[in-house]
Amino acid sequence: MKQPIIDIQNLRKTYTYYKKPPGLLGSLKSLFHREKLLTEAVKEVNFSIEQGEFVGFLGPNGAGKTTTLKMLSGILYPTSGKVNVLGFTPWDRKPEFQKQFSLVMGQKNQLWWDLPAMETFLLNQTIYEIPEKVFRASLKELSELLEIQDILTIPVRKLSLGQRMKCELAAALLHQPKVLFLDEPTIGLDVTSQQNIRTFLKKYNEQKKTTILLTSHYMDDIMELCKRVIIVNLGRIVYDGSLQELIDKHADYKLLKITFTQEMKRNDLKKYGKVSEFAPKRAVLHVAKAQYKKIAAHILEELPVDDIFIDEVSVEEVIRDIFAVTKTGTV
């Protein structure tokens, strides 16, 4: 069997921190006595990823995604468990390993703030010991793909958030990593910039066969890029599989979005399905997949309908449901 490029077994991470009572008196007290608290950020995580896969890593805030990514990058030591990335244990921080992966954090930049992005690129050339020829070729390719040729000599602080993110990506890819960890790369970007980043990532993954693990709160990112998703909540994996299967499994209903010609009462609609949204002249109903055609026909016949629209459940809703369910158990 082919060796997976990322392999995680029983990964756990517990953070220790100290409780600080509020206020000045509390601060004084905590000088002498501090109550120690433990949080289990990652309780038990197991998964493996093959070369070239583009995997979405989802979960609500505080689920343990970023902590897992930090351990995969060797920034944090785990409390226990085994991780193998490209044949290395990440927290040994071997240079041979570090030269083969990259980490991009949407909320933290590696570009030097007061200098043009090109300066960071050149620094990365020496840090990653990229031969001049390879560097030039990489730079040309990335700046064309990302369309950043004209902004490379402008100080980073003068760039827009979208331009900066593109430069961040370029800086992270100059050494042609085999594995790429992306932590919220589209956070805070406008719709066009998000789309640009997505188009780039898609193309890059297809061309280079780079293995990519992506966290994002934007479902558009995940839907467009990732065939496989891993969902984590409260430090445990609650789903690992294809996005489509997840939707099929959980969205066993369709949405009927109806506009009426006259004001209705909520109770009149209940017999057709679960009323999820209601305004006197507008309603959204959840109806079972098996029956939606029949029910729509009944509604058209029996109620003063102006317009009816049959829609699929959005991925956001499915995910939201899963997050809610997994607070109490598994999917």
Partner: peptide, 12 residues
């Protein structure tokens, strides 16, 4: 503030 993380992930 976590700036160290980016450096820890690099061969430096």
């Amino acid at each position: 503030k976590g700036g160290l993380s980016a450096w820890l992930a690099k061969p430096v």
